[in-house]
């Protein structure tokens, strides 16, 4: 087990090189990812016209939430790991990985990590530039971020998103095409994850319900924690829920992997 784990830095390095080969692709992604922030600024400025607050938010705190969300997304969201895993299973290229003395989950984890690092490198300059330019016209409150509690929530979000992606991708052992399933979950993540609007703008009952689902801990929880809008007890509850859901999806992914391997057949050289 231990000798096989020493291969992980190599997997990470290869993944990083592969990702950076397409740096223009990443740069474009990063540039385009700033667009929703611009749209949010225009839309919410109109909503706040003549109003000081909407729900618990001022215009500045709401736009800061959307800006922080961009960072959360670039650190924790898988890029096309789901489709890569699906292709490996469907096209049989999984064979060569099965022969290696390395647990598949850890192998994919190292590649996920390299993808996030490559994206961060490519996204850093465009993100910083767009934040700088937008902060000239948008009253962003980026100076008072709660990093001490926000970073664990951010890392938890990355683990949760990776494990959920792994579960979805592993259904490729049974399904021919998983893209519809992936896009369906995307839409749930966007709505119930706080991507479209912060969840605390929902009516209280719906907000409480959303906090029981895993999606809230992918975007809303780390972003709201970084913005400092979560009390300590709510943060403790959130971290527990986030870890619980991540553990659940890791165990589910393990079961799916075991069951899938029993079904998996691949022919050809």
């Amino acid at each position: 087990m231990i000798p096989s784990l020493t291969a992980l830095p190599t997997v990470f390095s290869i993944g990083l090189q592969r990702q950076l080969a397409y740096r223009w692709n990443y740069l474009l992604r990063a540039l385009f990812s700033a667009m929703p922030l611009l749209v949010s600024w225009v839309f919410w400025s109109a909503v706040f016209h003549g109003k000081e607050t909407v729900g618990p938010y001022t215009l500045a705190s709401l736009l800061t939430y959307y800006a922080v969300l961009l960072v959360v997304e670039s650190v924790s969201s898988p890029a096309d790991d789901d489709f890569q895993i699906s292709r490996e299973i469907r096209e049989g290229t999984l064979n060569s990985i099965l022969l290696r003395p390395l647990p598949y989950g850890l192998y994919r984890g190292a590649l996920f990590l390299s993808g996030r690092c490559a994206y961060l490198v490519a996204a850093l300059i465009p993100l910083a530039l767009s934040f700088f330019l937008l902060s000239r016209v948008i009253p962003l409150q980026l100076g008072s971020l709660d990093l001490a509690r926000g970073i664990p929530a951010l890392l938890g979000s990355a683990l949760l998103q990776f494990s959920l992606t792994l579960c979805l991708s592993l259904t490729s052992f049974w399904l021919l095409d998983i893209s519809a399933l992936i896009f369906l979950v995307y839409s749930l993540e966007f709505l119930a994850g706080g991507h479209v609007f912060p969840l605390d703008l929902l009516p209280p009952t719906l907000f409480q319900f959303a906090q029981l689902l895993p999606f809230a801990y992918e975007y809303w929880f780390p972003a709201a924690t970084l913005c400092g809008s979560i009390s300590h007890s709510a943060w403790l509850f959130g971290i527990t829920m986030q870890s619980g859901w991540a553990l659940f999806f890791i165990l589910l992914a393990h079961s799916l992997w075991q069951a899938g391997l029993r079904k998996y057949t691949a022919a050809g050289g």
Partner: peptide, 18 residues
């Protein structure tokens, strides 16, 4: 001009939010 231009689809969806 760019070898892997799959991100343009993301660009399309991002810009069309306007």
């Amino acid at each position: 001009w760019i070898v892997q231009a799959e991100s343009v689809l993301l660009g399309y969806y991002s810009i069309f939010q306007v």
